[in-house]
Amino acid sequence: MIYILSFPAAFLLVIVFLLPLFRYSWLSIHASSVITGLEVIPNNGANWFRLFNDERFWTDYMQTLRFAVSSVSVELILAILIALLLNHRVRSKDLVRALTLLPWALPTTVMALGWRWIFNTPYGPIEQIFKFLKLEPINILSDPNLAWISTVIGDVWKTTPFIALIILAGLQTIPDDLYEAFRLEGGKPKQAFFRITLPLLKPYITIAVLFRLAQAFGVFDLIQVMTGGGPAGSTESVALYSYLNAMRYLDFGYSSTIMIASFILLMFACVVCWFIIYNSKRLFQKSKL
């Protein structure tokens, strides 16, 4: 009967996580906007037809995917390097770890604002450095082809510590004698990394990548504050688009459709990603060693 103890928490979880999914599914087959006077009226799947033909949605989807995949892969590589470094015996390791963790702990909006100033033209430091080196200023935030890179930089800066921490935890579970045994077998340090470290880190990498992929896919704070989705919509994410539909255009039916669709597409992306990591051993062995 102790299961009664979990009812309040379970109730809250159902209200906040499951109820919205049903509500969105239901709203997505109804019209509910300023045009209908916010009444909820069935519209025979018109939202879904609109979604399939909505170029802005699919552009946003690809942009979101571009953002998520590039930031997570950069983060993963950086994080592995940082974790390997921190795994060495270093003096004042705790302090170093705390300081590298700092970007993760700061509110996204705070540093999104900070990055906007760093990339500012003509007064930001990046611009100043370019000027100092007598290079052509690049004006990254207002170039539709480059602006997304600035958002990736912001995201990499903020969330690399999180992945690094998880990978570091993974590294610390690998006993030293494995490496010693490998060395006695005549293995080189580089081989040890690919033959021992990476395979044993796989569960940690999987969880970190899946988690980060899901979060990056829902990117909202960073983009809303840093670029507002601009310039020319070149950094707009699906979450931001759905937000604009609900809060600016007051079209709740279509906003819900976008959310359900992005949820399905995200699950699809996660399954693909999990599949890649799961089969990475075979892919890996084909390509190396």
Binding site: F211, A214, F220, S262
Partner: peptide, 17 residues
């Protein structure tokens, strides 16, 4: 999966509540 869920997708429903 709930922990992985990008919760920003929930905001509309929560706003309704």
């Amino acid at each position: 999966s709930a922990a992985l869920f990008p919760y920003v997708l929930l905001f509309l429903s929560l706003l309704e509540i």
